[in-house]
């Protein structure tokens, strides 16, 4: 069994807490996650972003091991299991903080969700990423949709000649689209590098700002295409299996 890591590993950087004053004793003796005076756990700020929460710079390449270590260590700090004997106020804070922590970890762990989250964060809006077809596949997808509709309409006698023909066509389409999914993912990860390089190296000049904006926009498009392709692949799987 390991012993609980002393939370000082993480206390060097400060997490934004909800209030500058302790919710319990009203003292402003700031501790990290705990009040400096009464040692009650303090709520995380609602404005806290997930990168900060996880003690990470706003980069897209993440070391999974580090992320997991931080998650486990913060879980040991906040989890309700360790507050069962505490008062209602602390229980409530522990519950809220853990809910935020769990969402932060889930979002950052998955590269797609991580990218979507970063785009939202940087763009400053909460607009969802829409699903749009990749421009170069437009024609093919139109045809595929027609085939799919026809195949679905064939409800009963799908082992007719036409049914078999459509099925094998749709299965080919699926293979093509799955390859495309992989390509999109690879391109997205390429953009991760670009983003990180810009974040690390440069000062905030107007030029780097516009470069960053361009990278974000490119990622957004890749993600929209990816969502679109994924939905079609799912439709294809559902229809042909």
């Amino acid at each position: 069994m390991s012993t609980q890591p002393t939370s000082t590993d993480h206390t060097s950087r400060e997490l934004p807490m909800a209030r500058s004053m302790c919710w319990h004793c009203q003292s402003d003796v700031c501790g990290e996650y705990f009040c400096g005076r009464c040692v009650k756990v303090q709520p995380l700020s609602k404005e806290l972003d997930y990168f900060t929460c996880m003690n990470l710079p706003r980069l897209l390449s993440i070391d999974e091991k580090t992320l997991e270590d931080t998650f486990y260590s913060l879980s040991r700090t906040f989890h309700p299991d360790f507050y069962a004997t505490k008062d209602e106020g602390e229980k409530c804070v522990s519950l809220g903080n853990t809910a935020i922590l769990n969402t932060a970890y889930r979002t950052l762990k998955n590269p797609i969700q991580r990218a979507e989250y970063l785009i939202r964060l940087e763009a400053g809006s909460v607009k969802d990423i829409r699903s749009t077809p990749p421009a170069d596949l437009f024609e093919e997808i139109l045809e595929l949709q027609e085939d799919l509709d026809e195949f679905r309409a064939l409800a009963g006698p799908r082992d007719s000649d036409r049914g078999r023909e459509l099925r094998s066509k749709l299965q080919n389409d699926r293979a093509t689209l799955e390859t495309r999914q992989e390509q999109l993912k690879a391109r997205l990860f390429g953009k991760f590098q670009e983003w990180d390089a810009l974040q690390i190296s440069s000062e905030a000049t107007a030029e780097t700002q516009s470069q960053k904006a361009a990278v974000l926009k490119a990622m957004q498009e890749i993600l929209s295409n990816r969502t679109y392709v994924r939905n079609i692949v799912n439709d294809l799987i559902a229809a042909t299996s």
């Binding site: 069994m1 609980q4 879980s75 040991r76 989890h79 299991d81 069962a84 004997t85």
Partner: peptide, 16 residues
């Protein structure tokens, strides 16, 4: 075991 964790007697184990 979980009861022991909640009672504060076991600080090593944590279930997520």
């Amino acid at each position: 075991v979980q009861a022991g964790i909640l009672a504060g007697d076991n600080k090593d184990m944590l279930l997520l």
